[in-house]
Design a protein around this nucleic acid. Sequence first.
RNA 1: GCCCACGUAGCUCAGUCGGUAGAGCACAUCCUUGGUAAGGAUGAGGUCACCAGUUCAAUCCUGGUCGUGGGCUCCA
Length: 639
Amino acid sequence: MAADIRINMPGGAAQAFPRGAEVRDVLAVIGAGVSPSLVAARVNGAAVDLSYKIQEDAVIEPIEASSAAGLDILRHSMAHVMAQAVQDSFPEAQATIGPAIEDGFYYDFDYSPGFSPEDIERIESRMREIAAENLPFVRREVSREEAVALFQQKGEKYKVEIINDLPKDIKTVSIYAQGGYTDLCRGPHIPSTGMVKAFKLLSIAGAYWRGDERNRMLQRIYGTGFDTRQRLEEHLRLIEEAKKRDHRRLGRELDLFQVNDEAGGGLVIFHPKGMMLRTIIEDWERKEHLKRGYGIVMGPQILKADLWKKSGHFDHYRENMYFTEVDEQLYGIKPMNCLSHMLIYKSRIRSYRDLPIRYFELGTVLRHEKAGVLHGLLRVRQFTQDDAHVLCAPEQLNGEIKAIAEFVQYAMKIFGFDYEVELSTRPENSIGSDADWELATGALEGALKDSGIPYEVNEGDGAFYGPKIDFKIKDALKRKWQCATIQCDFTLPERFELSYVGEDGEKHRPVMLHRVILGAIERFMGVLIEQYAGAFPLWLSPVQAVIVTVTDRHISWGEEVRQRLISAGVRVEGDFRNEKLGFKIREAQMQKTPFMLVIGDREIDAGQVAPRQRDGKNLEAMTPEAFALLVQEQCSQFL
RNA sequence: GCCCACGUAGCUCAGUCGGUAGAGCACAUCCUUGGUAAGGAUGAGGUCACCAGUUCAAUCCUGGUCGUGGGCUCCA
């Protein structure tokens, strides 16, 4: 029967169309015409191609290339075009998967010679040809068997594997073809390759098939793409800008730290300014922890291997640990701080009245990280955690987790970070009973819900001893790094036979939380440097002010000002070199110093300094003591 | 650990299609004493990452080692 269907835009009036009307035709009538930047549409909420034939009453929404969903579709289509270009130039390359990602796309190929930078150029120019041909993307639904046969005949064994691994109840799959290239794909896609105009291939990398290191290493080509050339240019410019914020570059330029081959990879050497920054952060930590009822403790760097066996680390974490021998006894260099804290708890009988007990340690740990993962301050082999272990009764768990989550949120606000929260559940290689895992996971999730913190669940990503909540912040290139984490642990209290005497006079087992707020100080500093591009707020600046003299005859007042400011607690340096004022200002500016204190004849006569701010603004001249007060005031809200 | 790329002065980078290297900045000395983002001159500074091999000759070619960068796996 030829009954019409009724279709409307959200909030609009429905119009009648013949059953099977194509999306693009419908939009031409009820939309504002079909714009050239239209990539697809949502029909009753599901994204479909413009060629999709509508079979029932529907609400239809256009998807423009400029929207988030549109860019996703566009980039996904770019990945297909890239795959076509690769197979045109390298017929033996097998296509695997190629999704859109944030800001771009990639496609993984099995191609053992690997791609060279020249190959990438060749692929890119072939992509431009394909785009110029303006080939339509044609969708076809085929049976599983037909699809397997098709890809088998093309020699695409990865595609065959993907189809064979689909759930049994899926009977048909969709394939998309543009020109002579056919790919297995759910879609939707842009109408034709002509929309692929603003893209750039960025890099080539290895990636394991299905993300498993036991599998074959594939060749991944990353690209970025946008709906317009302007947006592409803007994005490429932002990447260049981000590179200038790289903490490794700023670490050298601002003389904060070094990582030296001679000393070893992943081992950070802090210079005075970097250590000043670190000291400020650590002082802040101690003060904030004392406010929240933590006791500051400290354990040794090495503990007997037997103790690591007892804790389970020897069995589950050994490959990440360093060992050493002392008097023919094997010792493990600590990769975590919990063991000493266990021993502190066990040093006497505990009552329910003592709980919760919170031990805080700025604990330096060593972990054997694989060479390929080391990265500036963000991934190192020796680092210091702002670590704490909270031992409490099970019924106190929820409150403790919430308090920690609040602490984290406070810290993130102080340091000016946005963050994402993930809940990680039980991994494969884990210890402990199902019941405990369930209880612990529930406690973490419950606290998140109670606190109204949005989070995502990361299945199977927990620590071997318990589930965890991770807080992640981003570096200049938008890579996510885990900083704060809250981990629930029923196992360690059991292994160490921790107990407390309850109200009932009986022994009970406490629950333990491992948690860090900033995480690793090194990593946190890395992201912090990138966050501020090295221009730290006054309270964090290693050098808050530089005294700059106009000529040599101003040096003695400069020296006096320096002494007086140091006495007043200002972190100040003097630049009394025989250089022009402009030169010294420029240097202080490039060092991103918050204040430059200019001293010339006028200032000496008045017993003052003339502060110039990092932003170029000059303040009224004032006495050194008035300046010290100003610094104190601006820092007081953080300290 | 795996894939790809890279390693030349403190930093950023040229360069040599095999005959032991150059710039700018930084550094030192001197001149200059200059009021808000680079004053001038002179000078010093490099086993061209390291170890083998090929060659009359290697910074350059080949192999290995170490390190770095971008990813993957893993993780604070």
